[in-house]
Amino acid sequence: MRVVRWIIALAIAAGVCWLFPLFHVVPLQAVKAEKAAGRFNATQFAETFWAKQLVPALDKTVKADVLLAEIQADPAAAKKKYSHSVGFSDTYFYFLSGTGRVVSVSDDEISLAITPGSTNAEVTLLAGLIFGDAVRDGTGLLNPSAYPNSQDFNDISAALDHLVETRVLPRLHQQAKIGAQISFAGCAEVDDEANDLMPLKVIPIQTTTP
């Protein structure tokens, strides 16, 4: 009789555990895949943003010759009229395009004279390792408030910088011959006006030769 009671108790316990399992055994790969699926994919986002928003927005850039002339005349007025900044910051960005003649070439920088007849470097296209938020923030197309976790927003910067390095710079290095004409569009970050306005340091998003 006692044995029967034990068997019944064990059967009930087994039934409860079957209905409400104390733990689940899940393959480690499945857990990793599930986590990755739920995670923001900055690389994918950057690819889509580049094709669908960034390249179409290149039509809205300020022309480099116009911007340079206005910076020469009145940097504060040029900043007010053409620049973009994020939050509370002394740093600001120009989203610009133009055509210039190559006046110097190095692994990290391609310098262009923009004004007709000028031999000075007025725009420097950054052509080495690309860091920072200029491409993400320089266009004003992306809003940090849209991202619950700022790490996702920061990952976009790194992914966009990577696209510049892999899509834009190899071709730019081929195009960059002293005296060659290069058309470009990109973002310039102005952190220190004494050093960053002349030449303007531009991260290129697109470059072509006529």
Binding site: V86, G87, F88, S89, D90, T91, P144, S145, Y147, S150
Partner: peptide, 10 residues
């Protein structure tokens, strides 16, 4: 109000 207001670090 903007949800996120970044403040630059120097």
């Amino acid at each position: 109000f903007a949800q996120k207001v970044p403040v630059a670090v120097e």
